[in-house]
Design a protein around this nucleic acid. Structure first.
Lengths: 217, 217
DNA sequence: GACTAACATGAGTCATTCTCAGGTTAGCGG
DNA sequence: CCGCTAACCTGAGAATGACTCATGTTAGTC
């Protein structure tokens, strides 16, 4: 159930190489454009033009504009999780400080270098996720997604477990952590395109303080 | 320079009673509609129809849709700050726990009862604030706004001052606090329309832990 | 009552999302 | 090689919605 990589709203999944390439190209162009014109400035027409596909093709893959952006967010999240897994695999963190450091540094790095990452990182609580409240499935899906991420994060940080808390409590804490971190880092990059250093430091303090009690050496 | 109650994008300020009433009515309808159809579903046409004013009138007050929503957010913020000032005035908080309790309970209450508050509370980091990155003034204004709020919050919590930190550091901390609290509470209300109690409790823990060190009894 | 400036109106313009009828290609059996 | 089918591709255009502006209306003043 790769709920983080796929989402409702995908219309046809690219099967052949040619299609897959177009699909990726559309996503890449979408990311580029988000950096250039922002979310509200994004038009499907322009995406199609830049990706050199007819507009119809975009809508063959994605049910609507929101699905396109969702798919990009999912890809970003996937990339981020892979990077985290790799870093934690290379050198298992020995403290909450280390976990937080790695997670945030990786985030900051992606935000600086990966097109489109800034505009919608994971889209945890962003507008487009509740773009249309009539699409309640989106909301639900989002919550699921959020939980799935927390679950995955937990696997990456086994030493948080077996503390005084049950795993449900840990998942809750991780969801809170993600949401808060996302918001503060968003602020950091709003103040300074390169990421305000003071705010990034505060973000780490915030998370370490909150997660500290869950730590069991 | 009441930067929190007014914003660029206001075209004409209602001068006469009649105009002022229409202005308020438009804002109220906007709030109602946000609850019903969400941000993305909001149309200026519908706002005008419900407020029983011609569409042109809406645009006489507000430069564009974003300005309308901004104005509502500003009004919400103003209401919230007034409520906080009142509560803190009635019973001066004696600890960080009390400050956080009051601030969050008041927020939760407003979110439950005030139309439109949920969709855009203060709009700190929401999409519509960076709706169009070409409007950099919006971004700047937003940062200003953010800072102004932090400043105002600081006045409400004098006992945080004169601790080991300078007032710039306090303001930074308060901005971080606002951003994080907003995000976590947003999550709480996304999980449960009445506000997930566990998440609200976690939010308090998060803030108390973070602000604790700034406290000087 | 005549004059003026501020205010109000909504049909129309333009930009944008998304559809769908019709065209193209790929694969395959004969 | 041909004919057939199913999958895939295309972009003109329908539908919607933000926003304007020429024209009409009101309120204030002498």
């Amino acid at each position: 159930m790769e709920s983080t990589t796929e989402s409702a709203g995908l219309r046809r999944r690219p099967m052949q190489r040619r299609s897959a390439e177009r699909y990726e190209r559309i996503l890449n162009v979408c990311a580029e454009l988000l950096d250039e014109v922002g979310f509200a400035g994004l038009t499907t027409t322009e995406v199609a033009k830049r990706a050199e596909v007819p507009i119809g093709t975009v809508y063959q893959f994605f049910a609507d504009k929101s699905a396109l952006v969702h798919a990009l967010a999912a890809r970003n999240l996937e990339t981020y999780m892979e990077r985290l897994e790799r870093r934690y695999g290379e050198a298992a963190p020995r403290s909450v400080e280390e976990v937080v450091d790695v997670a945030i540094d990786e985030f900051v790095d992606m935000r600086r270098t990966l097109p489109g990452f800034g505009v919608l990182d994971f889209g945890a609580g962003s507008e487009w996720s509740e773009a249309d409240p009539r699409d309640l499935y989106l909301l639900d899906e989002n919550v699921e997604n959020n939980t799935a991420v927390a679950r995955r994060l937990r696997m990456l940080t086994p030493f948080l477990d077996s503390s005084r808390a049950g795993s449900a409590e840990i998942e809750l804490a991780l969801r809170v952590t993600m949401e808060a971190a996302d918001a503060v880092l968003q602020l950091a990059f709003r103040s300074d395109p390169e990421g305000d250093a003071a705010l990034i430091a505060e973000c780490k303090k915030l998370l370490v303080g909150y997660l500290g009690p869950y730590y069991v050496g």
